[in-house]
Amino acid sequence: MQLTINGKARSFEENDFSVARLVQSLELTGKRLAIELNGEIVPRSQFEHTRLANGDKLEIVGAVGGG
């Protein structure tokens, strides 16, 4: 399955998995982040229940220093 994450194309062997599984495989578990899937925010409470499909575009963001 092909996903675009933060503007970069990435391939995954699995073909059907959840946002929670993606977060785990990216070693981001426990980090404070927010995720947008195809332009829509996925609430943290929905990570387990939200399935990803080939071609999905994700933005994964966090807080950084800024003025």
């Binding site: 990216l26 994964i60 800024g66």
Partner: peptide
Amino acid sequence: ITVAIRRTNIGQTAGEPSLL
């Protein structure tokens, strides 16, 4: 305090401290 919202670095952040 103000903070900016930016893309998370994928694959190089494990264990790295964050602003928070």
